[in-house]
Design a protein around this nucleic acid. Structure first.
Lengths: 142, 142
DNA sequence: TATACTTTTGCAACAATGTTGCAAATTAAT
DNA sequence: ATTAATTTGCAACATTGTTGCAAAAGTATA
């Protein structure tokens, strides 16, 4: 299973035309391990071997540019990242699913099965993207 | 009109059991003037007489606590505040309306008329609050 | 209105988070 | 294996948010 993840990661990086570096692989492993959203601090803590802060910032930015990850809106200054499903990549990072933030454990999850409803705005507004963040108590904490 | 706003502001502060201070009045005036959401930097710039940064942080926190303003989720590190409508106050700060972020002018607006649709999550999830942030091109920039 | 009491403000110092330039190290290509 | 291109780590800095404490402003009472 670890080697399977590794293959997957290498494939992902290749298809994004990114070189295979230790940092990128480690960070993607973290994403695959924890199936919730991660913030910058998590990478500094979770990675046994700690990378330089700058490298993490740059790696996440690269992943954003390539559509490998996307950001999740928050009401504080923390920036949360989640790994994208296939539909997100290639084009723009439209997330066509709902994000859930648990008030108990603090984790943020992508609810891939839950579609975002159609929202009709007043006339004159052009809609490009819709973000839905639900907060409450998650399955595990219930 | 300026005096009418002032009266309104004083009334608002009184009903929240807050003392009437210059900073609070000025900041609320800014909220009423600009009908979009504001972030911290706006207060430092927009207020002719610049207040201390710390005072602004504390004032906004106080307004949050009293339910006078609410935060709007963003995907960056900026924290955006909008003034609450009457339904928001008193209880928890549930925003029962959609937020719109214009990609052209960068402004964020509350669309009070646009209701948030009901979202049904998978079993096991307790929903407390739903945030919807739509991005695109606003009326004015169209 | 003057006084005492409470709250708020501003300053200083600090902590956390994010950015930029540049040299050294790593990865990719020949 | 050597060269060329990319990535990383360090240092230094910019921005954003927090805390303690004394001075100032606001509120309440006489």
């Amino acid at each position: 299973m670890p080697s399977k993840n590794k293959e997957l990661i290498v494939e992902l990086l290749k298809s994004s035309k990114l070189s295979i570096t230790e940092t990128r692989v480690k960070i993607l492993e973290l994403f695959l391990k924890s199936n919730g959203a991660l913030e910058h601090a998590d990478f500094e803590k979770l990675s046994g071997k700690s990378f330089d802060r700058v490298t993490i910032y740059r790696t996440l930015q690269t992943f954003l540019d390539k559509g490998i990850v996307h950001k999740i809106p928050t009401t504080d200054t923390s920036v949360r990242y989640a790994i994208c499903r296939s539909e997100c990549r290639e084009h723009e990072h439209h997330d066509h699913h709902v994000h859930f933030r648990c008030e108990e454990c603090g984790s943020t999850q992508c609810l891939d099965e839950t579609d975002i409803p159609v929202i009709s705005l007043p006339k004159g507004y052009d809609v490009h993207n819709v973000e839905v963040v639900v907060s409450g108590v998650c399955k595990a904490c219930h």
